[in-house]
Design a protein around this nucleic acid. Structure first.
Lengths: 333, 333
DNA sequence: CTGTTAGCGCCTTCAG
DNA sequence: CTGAAGGCGCTAACAG
């Protein structure tokens, strides 16, 4: 049994009204009598009509299409979990809001210039961009955002203006809090801090938080850049941990690397992470970390982009975070 | 600087030809003189024209839009890596072939009946479906596939017909081979085999492969169903491993669970996995496993779907697999 | 080989 | 409050 394509025309026929009237009830126009609205709704129901998004987009010039731009670092030692959660959160929320979302990997557009990117998204009828982890070095994408041709929501990067919002947790505060909780009651003063990327927005924020705590608690912090890499964290730990009391990492993945190094070195040092990825469980150790709800962040980003598309202007949104201790996928507290 | 939308009309104007002529060169029609083609191409180049896919789709009724249907088991102990690789492989290949791809999570359509699913995809102008791990129990989606309204490619599930292809590795052979390689030279005869899902297509295939080897090598195999869950594998290992010589798992995730259990039990048993996920590294052990190139599989699936959309008829595609030993993300052999 | 003419399915003034 | 008419940007016969 094949379901024939039922178009707005069929609905109009069945309801005994004009096509334009159906369109009006479809788009929640105000001036349609209750009676007509009911007739149309009934016809729609009966025929199982679902408007053709393509035609609707072409006609209205409002596509409701957005792109989720992700930088999935293949061949690097990364966690797929975070981008995956962004994808899940964004796609689900987009469906909720009847928006069409496509996923674009950064590598797909990396070699384009601003004009080419513009045309690419334009040809795809993309109206808004959800950009994850826009790096400071990425001049082209940044320029695209600033040109304002597309409404944008930046996840984990600053840059608010008329058509751009930013959404992120308070990284400095989170780092400060988790490290404080982690260190409380301990006599650990000499800290090895494995930071993320040099010039990384979130990395710098987290480092700021760490530094503030260091000042407050009189800690002696050695900062090294681990580039969010498990392997680098491992090497740095090997190199510096012996003379330190504890290791605080700007990501869970680096925390895993640190833990493995400690095991190999056969010494014990408490380790603190950041992100709350479930992957942590595989490290087999218990640990303090910051939990971000990436799915929720992506969903909120979609909402925000939708708001921008309706004419709202950009703003800075700070999402909540939690402090947790995890082990083997279980949340302890 | 805002790039104005340049339409086919502008190109036609600039090239001094009719709109339809531009359309013809755009769509590589044969009968256009070399001269005209050049003029048009030049105009396109100059104006930076990119055809509007929406309009083109509406007009031609060929959208080139496909959906990647994934079952991401949230809240279960799963690996995000595999779906992520499917996503990456499919999206990249779709871009390569100028197809538009949307990702649909099974949960988004789980409560629909066949008609609703049909209308949903129809309204989205989806022409083809890429379905990952279609389960035997999923009668509705299966019915949708069989109705033939959409061209489908099933990843890791059987069901070839006129408009449906199936793509997968030879699971029986792979399981047979990896287990054989794993056991070779060992005196292990008493095997605990942790199977995937009861009624799972790939699970049964793998079990068949295992059984064949068992017969050939005179193994005594205890089969238990671990549902691809780390936790269940862990429990089953606790329960049965003591009296066995080795553990063979139908997935790496279960292999990790088994390893953790062995550590807790403080006994040693060799473990064999399946899938080749990089996550294995986190288990910290060396292990034989089967490596599937999920990204490549997804890319091939896109190609196949494209072929179906062009009128080809369904077929069964067997992808290659490799036997590897892994440890800490490094491939040993 | 090129241009003219109809639409695709829907939205949006604008009369009535 | 409703319907007729014109178009969104492009494709696809059909004439010429």
């Amino acid at each position: 049994m094949i379901y024939e394509l039922v178009s707005i025309r069929d609905v109009a026929g069945k309801a005994g009204v004009a096509i334009s009237t159906v369109s009006k009830v479809l788009n929640h126009y105000p001036n349609v009598s209750e009676e007509t609205r009911r007739k149309v709704t009934a016809a729609i129901e009966e025929l199982g009509f679902v408007p053709n998004t393509i035609a609707s987009a072409l006609s209205s010039k409002k596509t409701g299409r957005i792109a989720l731009v992700l930088d999935v670092n293949r061949h690097a030692q990364t966690v797929d979990e975070i981008p995956m959660q962004y994808i899940i959160g964004a796609i689900n929320q987009a469906k909720e809001k009847n928006m069409d979302i496509i996923t674009v990997f950064f590598t797909m557009i990396a070699e384009m210039n601003v004009e080419e990117m513009t045309r690419y998204f334009q040809s795809q009828s993309i109206e808004g961009l959800l950009i994850c982890d826009l790096s400071k070095d990425d001049a082209i994408l940044r320029k695209l955002v600033e040109e304002g041709r597309f409404k944008c929501v930046l996840i984990d990067a600053p840059g608010v203006n008329e058509n751009t919002s930013s959404i992120h947790i308070d990284n400095a505060k989170a780092q400060y809090e988790v490290a404080k909780k982690f260190l409380i009651g301990k006599q650990n003063k000499k800290i090895l801090y494995l930071s993320g990327k040099k010039n990384g927005y979130v990395s710098e924020e987290r480092l700021n938080g760490m530094n503030e705590l260091a000042k407050e608690m009189g800690l002696e912090v050695l900062v090294r850049t681990g580039n969010f890499s498990e392997l680098e964290a491992r090497k740095l730990t090997m190199q510096y941990a012996r003379s330190k009391d504890a290791i605080i990492c700007a990501s869970d993945l680096m925390a895993i690397g640190a833990m493995k190094a400690l095991i190999d070195m056969d010494i014990y040092r408490p380790v603190c992470g950041f992100d709350g990825v479930s992957l942590m469980g595989y490290a087999g150790k218990q640990m303090h970390t910051v939990r971000q709800d990436f799915e929720q962040i992506a969903a909120s980003a979609v909402d925000e982009l939708s708001r921008l598309l309706e004419g709202g202007s950009g703003q800075d949104i700070v999402m909540p975070h939690k402090l947790i201790r995890i082990k083997y996928l279980d949340v302890i507290s």
